[in-house]
Simulated assay, not measured.
Amino acid sequence: MLGIVTRRRGWRETRLNTHGEAYEDFISAAYIAAIRLGTPTRAGLVHGDMDDEAVTVATEELVARGLLASTDDPDAWEVVPPRDALPRYAEAVERRMQTTRMTAGEVDALWRRAVGERPTLAASDLDVIDGTEAVAYRIASVHRSATLRVWWAVDGSPAGRQLLAEAVADPGRLAVRDGVERRLALDTSLLDDPAAMAFVDQLRADGHPVVFGHGVPFSLVVVDSVTAVVDLTTFDRDGGSFEVRLAPPVRAITRLFEAIWALATPYWPGLLEAPRTPDRLPLAERDQRILALLTTGASDQVIARLMAVSVRTVERRVRYLMDRLGAATRFQAGVQAARRDWI
């Protein structure tokens, strides 16, 4: 119904026995008739050459689409202002179209199994994405199409950094529907990226979990377990990235995200702040911050930049902390510190 039909049609011929485009024409004409009435009523629509049954079908559909609103009178409706209603309805249709395209490969594979054919990777199951701008656009698009979950891991790729900056300037850039589960896993190289941290704060404020891990292999997004975008702009800005909608590779990419998530460290708001009660712990403020950053897997170089000290200073303090905690590795130092409630 995005192309509104304004010409009058023969209602008797096209009302309830229509399907496909003819049905859309019927609903469109009913909508125009309702708009012309200003305050549409059953009597007014019937007077316009619709019979009672056609009025019932048309108005129920228009209410479901958010174009009319019911009133206390079952035979009267209000027209939702078209300037508001039509863009919302168009967005809903676009989301359904995008979901249809994304699930086409899975549905085709289901059909092939049902008729005894081996599922194959068709052209519709895999889109190669060329260029940083195109990758960023695709990731933003799949965010908006999500109905259940969006899991996003970012390795600091050019497309990822661009999107994080855009999302801070325009929160709608990576908007998702209410109720969609969001997870964000960031490489520790992004700890000193102001845009990344601002976006993290936005997600945290909305109650979504964020983790940091050292060595995220590449950026990826998994949406609703039916589509995945692999962002390889870290390795090649001009090509190589892709979107896939076939179940086996989507499951494999989902498993990779789950592994990244399990090995990463949850981010908490005070991670980059000075401790509020430094006297409570047997460590200097600087060492507490170093320990907190160690738990994320941050490298000495990242810690040095965040704390505005030299890498040599960080290396020296890390060795001191590992000795004090009796830890053989940086990871063990973080675990021991957490067990002692030092961070």
Rank of each mutant, 00 (worst) to 15 (best):
M197V: 06
L191A: 02
D201E: 11
A175F: 06
R173Y: 08
L186G: 07
L186R: 01
P194K: 06
A198T: 01
V176F: 01
S189I: 01
A205G: 04
R173T: 11
D178A: 09
L191Q: 00
G172V: 01
D193F: 12
G172R: 11
A196P: 12
L203Q: 04
A195E: 10
D201Q: 09
A205C: 02
D193Y: 14
D192S: 05
R204Y: 14
V180F: 15
L191D: 01
D187V: 01
A175K: 03
V200F: 10
V200L: 13
D192M: 08
S189F: 02
T188D: 03
M197T: 05
A205H: 06
A195W: 06
D201Y: 04
A175H: 10
R182Y: 02
A198S: 04
Q202S: 15
A198R: 09
E181R: 13
R204D: 14
V176Q: 02
R173S: 09
R182C: 04
A185K: 11
L186H: 04
D201P: 09
P194N: 08
L190S: 04
G172N: 05
R183T: 10
P171F: 11
L174N: 03
R204E: 12
A198P: 03
L174G: 06
R173V: 10
D193R: 15
A198I: 02
A198Y: 04
L184F: 11
L191N: 00
L184N: 11
A196W: 12
L190T: 05
